[in-house]
Simulated assay, not measured.
Amino acid sequence: MSQPHSTVDRLLADESGRRPRADARRNLERLVEAARTAVAEIGVGVSAHEIARRAGVGVGTFYRRIPSLEMLLETVLDDLLDEIANVADQALEDPDPWSGLCVFAAAYVRLRAESCGVSEALGGACGDALAQRLEDLRGRIRRLVERAQSSGVMRADIAWQDIPFLFAAAATGEHTLGIQASDQQWERNLNVILDGLRPIRPGIPPGAPPA
């Protein structure tokens, strides 16, 4: 995960251009970090009061430092989606198409599993605010899939549009049917999914089975 300073700098860039006091910047950094954790745990419906409470400041300080709740959430989510895009770009440069796809898949599913807000954003919960980000990500996923298929390391009968749904399915909740997920549940799920995409003998899922 990236540090919050990039988000802070982007929010400061929207202000008048005056250099903020050190205490004002610290408050903004606390608010950004609180927003990241709140978005991960609660989702995009988190309130300004909840973010301010987690940051240890008043809601008045929140609105003095942040232009709007919507801008803060969009900026935080934009940075998180940027992390995914960077991983996809690195994966596309990997000389091994299958290895690149697997590295991207692990980062993508991990972030979905760790952040409720990212999962909601990828599902379109933010409307048009992140539409360009999602379009760019679709393009990267398509190139990763087509490159793997062209190399013969991935089944050719799978549409690239299937992949986001399959990867989303790997990021499960902690319980189902009274069964407790293992500590590596999303990794086990993803391993099975990736094995199903290959035209070769499957491997062994990592970690212990669910309790």
Score class of each variant (00 low, 15 high):
Met1Arg: 08
Ser16Pro: 00
Asn27Gln: 12
Asn27Val: 09
Leu28Met: 07
Arg30Ala: 08
Val32Lys: 00
Ala34Ser: 12
Val46Gln: 01
Arg54Met: 10
Arg54Gly: 10
Gly56Tyr: 15
Val57Gly: 05
Thr61Asp: 03
Phe62Gly: 02
Arg64Val: 12
Ile66Glu: 01
Ile66Gly: 03
Ser68Gln: 05
Met71Thr: 11
Met71Pro: 06
Leu73Pro: 00
Leu77Val: 08
Asp78Tyr: 04
Asp82Cys: 09
Ala85His: 01
Asn86Glu: 15
Val87Met: 08
Ala91Met: 14
Glu93Tyr: 08
Pro95Glu: 08
Pro95Trp: 00
Pro95Tyr: 00
Pro97Val: 10
Gly100Thr: 06
Leu101Asn: 01
Leu101Ala: 06
Cys102Ala: 15
Phe104Pro: 01
Val109Ile: 14
Arg110Gln: 08
Arg112Pro: 01
Ser119His: 02
Ala131Arg: 05
Gln132Trp: 04
Arg133Ala: 06
Arg133Cys: 07
Glu135Thr: 15
Asp136Met: 03
Arg138Glu: 09
Arg140Phe: 05
Val145Asn: 03
Gln149Glu: 14
Gly152Leu: 12
Asp157Ser: 15
Asp157Arg: 07
Asp157Asn: 13
Gln161Arg: 13
Leu166Ile: 05
Ala168Met: 14
Ala168Arg: 06
Ala171Met: 07
Thr172Leu: 09
Ile179Asp: 11
Gln180Trp: 11
Gln180Ile: 10
Ala181Val: 04
Asp183Ala: 09
Glu187His: 08
Glu187Asn: 06
Val192Ile: 13
Arg198Gly: 11
Pro199Gly: 15
Gly203Arg: 03
Gly203Val: 04
Ala208Tyr: 13
